[in-house]
Design a protein around this nucleic acid. Structure first.
Lengths: 270, 270
DNA sequence: GAACGATGTTCTATATATTGAACACTCTGC
DNA sequence: GCAGAGTGTTCAATATATAGAACATCGTTC
């Protein structure tokens, strides 16, 4: 019987093994790998399955699992001897959300824009140049919608938001190029074109992606500053390109205005 | 200058130290303590502050933090050398939510009930007899509301939901007594009265708390079964007691019906 | 502007977490 | 009903993560 986890993730074994070696606190690297594995899996896993998948020693794996269970980050079913993610991770996430004023302040803005334009709005946070994470979402609730979930991850430089991150991040071109080459688009722009779009993004204060990341889908993104330096957040609008049509201009204006207001509240600003 | 963290949590040092000693993977215990500390704190913390607060050795603390930062569970600001929770915890939480069908299935029911009765509805999961966690929430959006957040924790046996957990959990009375004695109520019931209420809860299939946990607030809770054994989930309605009035009967019926339907979908049932 | 205090970081000996084999235990198939 | 494979778990030797002191670096104060 084929294992869906192994099928999906090419080789976590190598990665984990390498990371464990370098770290001065390898138990934590192992623990994180286990948490992620349990997150990917749609059913609870046993010690051996986890150890095999991650290339860990079963006994070590057991100790780590017990420690995680003690911390209520992992649940343990004594009958089946299977482990799964536990609700403790949710508590951590709640604290994280509460800690960052962006999340609270962005939500009402997203709600209003989603309602007004009848599309899906996201609040996004960049994590370096690796990826960005959806931290807030609002949907209009009527008609067909494109849907994501809070907590979803995307490559940092993809789509309209990626252009914002690149445009206002002041990164060396060589660094951008390296990341850019790893991106997957439905309709990939050439690097030179993309660099030109970055200049335009800087000039107009927002970025647009018309069907390049996902065919038929238009994404508009405006950066939000929390302080000086590069922006880490962005407000994002996602809609079916055809349905947007005439409203695109108004949406852009509204988005930039909202992002500007938010930057002001957060003490950021150009 | 007084430290808000120390003021709030009596002595994490002892707890962490004890837990670290027993564990076969102490790094994980430390890591979890750090994550929770960073969660509690409303500003980023430095190595020394964290180490002092938790009674850890600074160098060890540093290694743990670096490992956590590597896993993107903790963010590090190279300028200020401060650490804080990172968005990775949110990704874990998303996986946890997705993994449990209760969360997806409960939401529409909660939305409908919140709308119909104009109050706050919760989906709750019990974690043993220690505490329960809010995993889903719906609010009617009109008028004054009692508010909690997804991820919030409560003692397992408190209020109406606590009665459900105790009533259907089949725990020895001595165990219940020990936990019961630690609870804080606005208007604490006597243990014997409480035991009688458990019998009633078993008989009628739901529990009510009228101002005992929080003065003036009525809580109704109905258990949800995912399989055989004790229920781990519950649907909860929270409203201002006075405002509920006549509707209480209808609310109880609707809640029990929703919880029953949900149990059916989840493959549980009495 | 020098001395101080506090903070973050590196370094090395040692207590100990990890390993891998041995031990129970359950389930399966014959 | 018994062998066998698989699982979870314990146990003792050793590789290594950790503790504590030394070092580096910053911001403050006199």
């Amino acid at each position: 019987m084929s294992d869906p986890i192994r099928a999906r993730s090419p080789s976590p074994v190598r990665k984990v093994a390498a990371a464990v070696k370098d770290s001065k606190a390898p138990a934590i690297t192992r623990a994180a790998a286990i948490l992620r594995l349990l997150g990917r899996s749609d059913r609870p896993l046993g010690v051996q399955a986890i150890a095999k998948e991650l290339g860990l020693v079963p006994s070590t794996c057991l100790y780590v699992l017990r420690a995680l269970a003690e911390e209520e980050l992992v649940s343990f079913d004594p009958d089946t001897k299977r482990y799964a993610l536990e609700a403790g991770v949710l508590t951590l996430a709640r604290h994280w959300l509460r800690r960052d004023p962006f999340n609270d302040l962005a939500q009402p803005l997203l709600d209003r824009l989603a309602q007004r334009f009848g599309l899906t709005m996201l609040g996004v946070q960049a994590v370096g140049l690796d990826h960005m994470i959806v931290v807030a979402m609002a949907q209009s609730g009527s008609g067909f919608q494109l849907s994501t979930q809070v907590g979803s991850r995307f490559p940092a430089l993809i789509s309209a938001t990626g252009r914002c991150i690149a445009a206002f991040g002041d990164y060396p071109e060589t660094v951008l190029k390296a990341r850019f080459d790893q991106l997957r688009w439905d309709d990939p722009p050439a690097f030179d074109d993309w660099m030109a779009q970055l200049r335009q993004t800087r000039a107009q204060g927002f970025a647009v992606d018309e069907g390049q990341y996902i065919a038929g889908v238009t994404v508009v993104s405006a950066p939000v500053w929390k302080g000086a330096g590069r922006p880490v957040h962005a407000l994002v609008a996602i809609g079916i390109g055809a349905a947007l049509g005439r409203e695109l201009g108004a949406l852009q204006d509204a988005l930039v205005e909202a992002a500007g207001a938010l930057s002001g509240q957060l003490g950021g600003g150009a």
